[in-house]
Amino acid sequence: MGIYLPIAEMSVNMVVILAMGAAVGFLSGMFGVGGGFLITPLLIFYNIPPAIAVATGANQVVASSVSGALVHLKKGTIDFKLGTVLLVGGIAGSTLGAWVFALLRSVGQLDLFVSLVYVALLGTVGGLMLVESVRALQRARTGATPALRQPGQHNWIHRLPFKMRFRQSKMFVSVIPVLGIGAVIGFLASIMGVGGGFIMIPALIYLLKVPTNVVVGTSLFQIIFTAAYTTIVHSTANQTVDIVLAFLLMVGGVAGAQYGARAGQKLRGEQLRALLALLVLAVALRLAFDLFVRPASVYSLTGL
């Protein structure tokens, strides 16, 4: 069933887009991430122009994060204060990201940059998570208690100034790394069309030692606003948000997310992290393949 996308100016199969949204929504609900890092590459594989895929992906992330954050709101597992500080950094990073995005687009290196950032980030994050979760799984098998948060053990981050207390997360840390993480993720979010959950979650767990139970909710809470801001910035600067495409993805996505969240509850934390790591690595490999293997045609056309 064909549907015409008014901004992408092309006709796509509606069922394919809905299914794409649902599949990604299922995975995002399961792992507690927005799913932007899957949606954007999938749209690009489906011949949606990268600039539109990125901006529309960000719009879709808003819907799936709202849907996911509502679950955590009910459970009370969102640290609003931490989320807000992350957001302040995120807005700054996102503004810079949209500017770099427009610049790269005009010199014709946007696709390359987006692919490189994806491969590097997904590869690193996926690899680290896989190693960590496999270790955790081994520990669980040998009977040792997993110890992600070791009280009393502080790294260099905890020695920085401007400390702030985050009651819900039971933390007393400097705002510098919090703002920094927010800014880096905001920057990447606007270039990659992602919310950044897959970087945010490990960063909060491993760098800031935020308790795992509040990480997902807080990350989703701040992603709502970073992605919303990214959407508006892209829409204003580049006019690349396709609302029809975004809506189809959202409908598929929010439906899939609720089922995914339920499936996720049946798995253990380490198992979930290992699976997410494999998924992230698979996307990285697929993108690296495109980058390093001779393309079907070395020529490409763009409008001016």
Partner: peptide, 14 residues
């Protein structure tokens, strides 16, 4: 408008 649509869809979907 795109963001509002996303909020409403996310909320309704939930």
């Amino acid at each position: 408008a795109a963001v509002l649509l996303a909020f409403v869809t996310g909320w309704l979907g939930r």
